[in-house]
């Protein structure tokens, strides 16, 4: 038989009094308590600020550090003259699994560029932050590197970004009170 019989470990006398485990538990928690307490005290004197006494980030005042590759809110990159780099090739609109990009193309005066977006709407209420639009763009025209995380709105309409907001993050929309 290939059955492996596991012996059930009986609790010994000390285990059943609970005392050793209680002492170990108190040792661990008190260790944290006194270490953090001393650190908090030193911080209030302005010392050892580099060592954190708590893992908490007090969010609105203090943002959690983001990884460099974190995908945050979208933006459209600009040429030197401030016009969008986007050539309205519709690649991102096509690849987007959430179908939240809506581009209206217009003819660009420069024949080398051919097209430009007359309007570029992105509905953040639908976006799943997959980043496909960034991957697929041939012109490096759309990026997700604004580091904006606090996206909140009172209605679905307010979640929609238009080309102005995408070109200049935090310039329009909710951010204007």
């Amino acid at each position: 038989m290939a059955t492996k019989v596991m012996e059930r470990q009986e609790l010994n006398f000390w285990d059943r009094t609970y005392l050793p485990t209680v002492v170990i538990g108190l040792w661990v928690t008190s260790g944290h308590f006194f270490k953090n307490l001393i650190l908090h005290a030193l911080h209030s004197l302005g010392l050892f600020k580099g060592i954190r006494a708590a893992v908490t980030f007090e969010y609105p005042e203090e943002a959690r550090p983001l990884s460099r590759r974190a995908r945050t809110r979208h933006r459209l990159t600009q040429r030197k003259d401030g016009t969008p780099r986007c050539v309205a090739c519709m690649m991102c609109e096509t690849v987007c699994p959430a179908r939240c990009i809506n581009i209206v193309a217009g003819e660009h005066p420069d024949p080398n560029i051919e097209k430009y977006p007359v309007s570029f709407d992105l509905d953040l209420g639908k976006c799943v932050y997959c980043g496909f639009c960034v991957e697929v763009c041939p012109e490096d025209a759309i990026r997700m590197d604004t580091r904006i995380l606090d996206i909140a709105a009172y209605s679905r309409d307010q979640m929609k970004l238009d080309i102005k907001e995408l070109l200049n993050p935090r310039s329009t929309l909710l951010y204007k009170k």
């Binding site: 953090n36 006494a53 708590a54």
Partner: peptide, 10 residues
């Protein structure tokens, strides 16, 4: 506060 300091919170 004590629970917070114990659990590395604020």
């Amino acid at each position: 506060k004590q629970s917070a300091v114990m659990q590395d919170r604020i």
